[in-house]
């Protein structure tokens, strides 16, 4: 990873992007709590498989310890899904583009208890990224940063293997930060404007973390109320999150 220039790293991260995904099942009107949640969880399950493949393609990720790889993905999966959703929706004010065949406006979430609050936060984040005219190169770097930064304050390494993996992770985080700085520098801004843009983009990640936490809470409630059966991988990722927080 250290041998790559920021530009080369951005190229690698762009190439790691998952393919466009389709739901392939029409969500029929009238929407119900169960049908909307079924579509959203079905999509999340498909996207999780692609996310693991994406993470493995980020230079240096598979050199981390398996335990770090697992923890990073467990901590950030919903943030990564949500940033992807925000990116797909950035040119569609007022709509959330889950897939090309599943586009919802905020009111269409009203049949699912508690989801409109989350839709509104996602739409607000999308509007902010629209204002900032987020570029694709910046988006892919931000998504990689979410992954690499996700468990920084959760686990503290103890064994030599864990310490080595943590050192690699920190180097990787620096490299992706440099890649983001490079992506911002291409826009012809002054140095001052570049620093401000970097701060604005990174500050939005705390908003994404907040919405993700709300989303985890919501999905746990839906699971407890048996609104929707959860698929194996999604269930595993949700359980990991609720175990960490409890």
């Amino acid at each position: 990873t250290l041998a790559l220039t920021p530009e080369q790293l951005v190229t690698c991260i762009m190439e790691a992007e998952p393919p466009e995904i389709y739901l392939m099942k029409d969500l029929k009107k009238p929407f119900t709590e169960s049908s909307v949640m079924m579509s959203l969880t079905n999509l999340a399950d498909k996207e999780l498989v692609l996310m693991i493949s994406w993470a493995k393609k980020i230079p240096g990720f598979v050199e981390l310890s398996l335990s770090d790889q697992v923890h990073l993905l467990e901590c950030c999966w919903l943030e990564v899904l949500m940033l992807g959703l925000v990116w797909r929706s950035v040119d569609h004010p007022g709509k959330l583009i889950f897939t090309p065949d599943l586009k919802l406006n905020r009111d269409e979430g009203s049949c699912v208890e508690g989801i409109m609050e989350i839709f509104d936060m996602l739409l607000a984040a999308t509007a902010r990224f629209r204002e900032l005219k987020l570029q694709r190169e910046e988006y892919v770097c931000l998504k990689a940063l979410i992954l690499l930064n996700s468990n920084m304050c959760v686990s503290s390494p103890e064994s030599p293997e864990e310490l080595e993996s943590r050192a690699k992770l920190l180097r990787l985080l620096d490299a992706v930060t440099d890649a983001l700085v490079w992506a911002i520098s291409r826009k012809g801004l002054t140095f001052q404007q570049q620093s401000t843009r970097l701060a604005h983009l990174l500050m939005l990640l705390s908003h994404i973390r907040h919405v993700s936490n709300k989303g985890i809470e919501h999905l746990s409630n839906m699971k407890m109320k048996n609104v929707v059966p959860l698929y194996d991988l999604l269930l595993e990722m949700l359980d990991a999150n609720t175990t960490h927080s409890s």
């Binding site: 693991i52 398996l66 697992v70 990722m237």
Partner: peptide
């Protein structure tokens, strides 16, 4: 349960050398 038991699918997909695709 051990970490590996709790995260069977995630472990399998991470360790699988072939490209992961949706089932």
């Amino acid at each position: 349960s051990s970490l590996t038991e709790r995260h069977k699918i995630l472990h399998r997909l991470l360790q699988d050398s072939s490209p992961t695709e949706p089932s």
